[in-house]
Structures are given as C-alpha cells and as structure tokens.
Design a protein around this nucleic acid. Structure first.
Lengths: 248, 248
DNA sequence: TTGCGTTTATTTGTATACAATATCATTTTT
DNA sequence: AAAAATGATATTGTATACAAATAAACGCAA
C-alpha cells in the first residue's frame, strides 16, 4: 500500500518533525500539508497514520493530527522500555557478534574518543558536539545490529527517533556546569562506552547487559533532570513567532 | 482520525484474523471487505494500515494486504523480544505491585491450579483446556499490569496477539506424548507459575525476572518444537477448500 | 509444446466532492 | 452580566470516480 505519493508525504512530514520544524504539539492539518506537498489529502492521511504508528504523531477522531507531545510519565515509560530493549540487545550482541560488527563498534568508539579529546580542548565548538552525538548513535546502532535481531533493532530505532524529537530539541545551553564537571562527565561516559565494548568483545552477555543498562540509566537520569527543569511541562521548546503565526 | 466506520472495519477484520477465519497468508482485498462491512474502501484501507502497525497484516504497494505469515526466523525474533519485555515487566512488577495486583495474580493462579487438577483427572475435556489457557493469559496480564508501565504493557499485549494468530491456530493434537509426561509437564508449569508469583510477592525483582524468563524459554522451546514439526513452514493450518477457491 | 510479447482484467493508489462533526463567535435568554 | 443556545466556519471522515500498476490470459512464433 506504500505508493509513491504516500511515501513522499511520509518522508516530508517525518523529516520536518525530526528536524524540529514541526515542534511537538503542532497541529498537522491534512489540507494544508497536501497543498505544501502537492498531493491530495488521501496520501497525507496515510502518511499521518503511519507516523502515528511510529509514535511521532498522535491522532484523535475529528480533531486531526498533531506532533506527539509527551507527558513526563510517558517519557519515563519510554526510557524504561528502551532500557529493557537496549540492555537485552547488548547481551545478544555479546553472544552473536561477528568480527565485522566488532570493527564497526570499535570504529565509532575511536571516533568518539578523538572527538571527546578535541572538545575538551576547545569546548565551544558546536559542530564537534554534533559529530560526537552522531558517533554515539553509530556506536549504539552498531551494537543493536550485532545483536542479530531485526525486530528488536527496528523497535529500538523507533524509540531513538522519538527520543530525538523529545530530547534533542530541548532548550540547550541552560545547564550551568563547571568546566571540570563537564570534562569529568565526558571522560566517564567514554570510559563506560569502553566497558560496554569490552564486555561484548569478550562475549560476556551478562556484563554487556549490565554495562549498557547502567550507561542508559545515567543518561536517563541526566535527561530527566534537564526535563524537569524545563518547567513548561514536556514541551521541547516554545514556539517561535513564525510558528505561532503559521498555526493561527 | 479514528472515525466510527474506520473502527468498525478495524474490529471486523481484526476479529476474523484472531479467530482464524482469515488464516495467515489470506489476501485482504479492500473492495471485497468494503462490501462485506458495508462501508467504502477508504475506512477499510485505514483499518488495514492500523492492523499493519499492530503486526497482524502485511501490506505491499500495489499488491494489497494479507494476513501476516511469519517465517520461522521472524517468529524466533518475536519470541526473543517477548522474552526481554515480559522478563523486564516481571522485574518491575516485583517492585511496583499493589495489593490488588497481587490479588489478581493469585486469583488467576488458583484458577489455574484447580483447572490443572481437573484436566489431569479428565484429560479429554477440551473446554477445560480453553479455560486453562484463558487463566494463563490472565496471569500474565495481571503481572504486566502490576509493572505499572502502560507502554510496555501495550507492547507485550501486541506480541501476545500476534503469537495467538501464529501459534494457537496451529494443528493441534499432533503431539504424541504419554499421559505421564503430559501430567508432569502440567504440574511443572504450574509450579513455575507459583515461583514467579512468590518472587513478585516478596519484591524480588531479580528473581521474578529470572523465573519469568525461564518460564517463557520453556514455552518457546516447546512451541518451536511443534512449529518445526509442522512442515508447511509457518503456515498455521492448511487452507480449507473454500478459502482456496476464494483466493484463486 | 514452450517461450515470449501483447492485451485484458483486476486491484490498488489518488483526487475530489460531499457529509458529519467540532470549534468559535454571536445572539438570546434568564 | 452570565449562561445557554444558535449559527457560521473550518476540518475531518466517507464515498466514489478515475489513473496507474500488477497479474492473468491470450496469441503467436520457434
């Protein structure tokens, strides 16, 4: 049923949700989207339905679709789910990895090590941070790939995307932190990644799982802390004037 | 976007997939379904899309929808996913359960105990077996409810349904097994349920998780054995002549 | 008979018109 | 003036007609 136009609409909307152009809560009206994408409402509706299944959009009868806006409870539940899945995947990776898988993981790990050092040298470089995040994602994806379970992989990737919408788009730079703290944290995270890799490489399923779980727990705690500070509930960021105008 | 007619179509098709009337592999043509349900093709298409998200239907562009037919690999992956989620849920249940939750679990457990004994007395009674399965499901659902994570609960329930389509509708009664073996297995399973309950009741998260995992592993092994014996690959059962005629 | 190319028929994908429903502003009533 | 009722507007849900694509049927040549 994935026809060309439906796919076009799907990619169009999805891309804008992930980039933050469509912020959480923004209402997605079929007619308007159809006009922008230059297709009819039908494939737009299909696309919205698929995005709902992905967990990026919520739809209510007769009220239309909007970019999903999570409550703190929902976010916590999602983190817990991710913890369970990604921990399990790490365990599987320890058992099922191939040499190539290990290489992939190591590759991302070394890139992270290099970038971490560079960032500690020059903490103001924004592009480096972006690269670090990308390599971190590569690291995690390499692990769930090594687990050799496509279904679990698909599920985790889904959660990663939702996370990205809810977390990455949050107000940045609001975290007062000393240089020392920040340095220490970066090094600690890198060390944890080393531990995860080591456990997988020595085929220690229990260890890999434990390391991954504690790593994610640290991340979750940290993120939750940031979120509770953003007192607007769970709205990732305030709408810009443009977006407000666009909505009205 | 869930309008009345879309919901009607969704329930109609879903019910028939779960009951086995629409067997795995059966093609679901929109026009025909629309005629049966007495709505237009549009809500039928919506319903099929939602069923695809549930994992009960597979859709390919221009080729239409069909009831999902799993390969052995897919089934194994799904079982692994269920293992991870339901194990995790058991651990959470040990930590988060209320008195009422425990009561629910115990209730299902006692019903299972009673039915198991009755079945061992009169092994030929089919309705008793059905009741036992139902109570088993209640037991598991009570546990994932006690875990207090709606997202994980939803996910596990989804997997249960898929399992039901793929497993419960398999050819039955083909398993040559002595009365003694069968009795012993029933008692062992019941004992395992007792262990799971005990671990949860004493708030032993690690134990609950372990017990649940080993219980599911036993079930998975057993089911896999049955499946590999059904040499038709993963087709739940052969199509009836009517269904064949209908498909051609 | 078999293999290939063309044609036909069926089924899906898309657009669009219409109907049903929710929202918002206005008016009416208390 | 506040609350309720009413109506206007906008947006979704549904049906249907048409276009595109696939699969089946057919014919023809080797």
């Amino acid at each position: 049923m994935k026809s060309v136009n439906t796919d076009v609409a799907y990619e169009y909307i999805r891309k804008r949700i992930l980039s933050g152009e469509y912020a959480p809560g923004k209402s997605l009206m079929t007619e308007m989207l159809a006009k922008d994408i230059k297709v009819s409402r039908t494939p737009v509706r299909d696309a919205l339905r698929k995005l709902e299944a992905d967990g990026l959009v919520s739809i209510r009868a007769h009220l239309g679709a909007s970019v999903k806006k999570m409550k703190l409870k929902d976010f916590r539940e999602m983190c817990d789910l991710r913890l369970a899945l990604e921990g399990h995947a790490a365990g599987l990776a320890a058992l099922n990895h191939s040499e190539t898988n290990l290489l992939e993981i190591r590759y991302a790990l070394e890139a992270m090590r290099r970038l971490t050092e560079e960032i500690i040298q020059a903490p103001q470089e924004q592009p480096l941070l972006g690269e670090l995040v990308r390599e971190d994602v590569r690291f995690h994806i390499a692990i769930i790939t090594a687990a050799k379970n496509d279904l679990i992989k698909k599920e985790i990737l889904r959660l990663h995307l939702i996370n990205r919408v809810q977390v990455v788009l949050m107000p940045t730079g609001k975290v007062p932190k000393t240089k020392i703290e920040s340095e220490a944290r970066r090094r600690a995270i890198l060390a944890k990644h080393d531990d995860i890799y080591a456990a997988i490489a020595r085929s220690d399923a229990v260890g890999a799982k434990k390391e991954m779980e504690s790593h994610l727990m640290e991340w979750i705690d940290h993120t939750m802390f940031l979120m509770t500070r953003a007192e607007t509930g769970m709205l990732a960021r305030d709408l810009t004037p443009d977006e407000l105008a666009y909505n009205s």
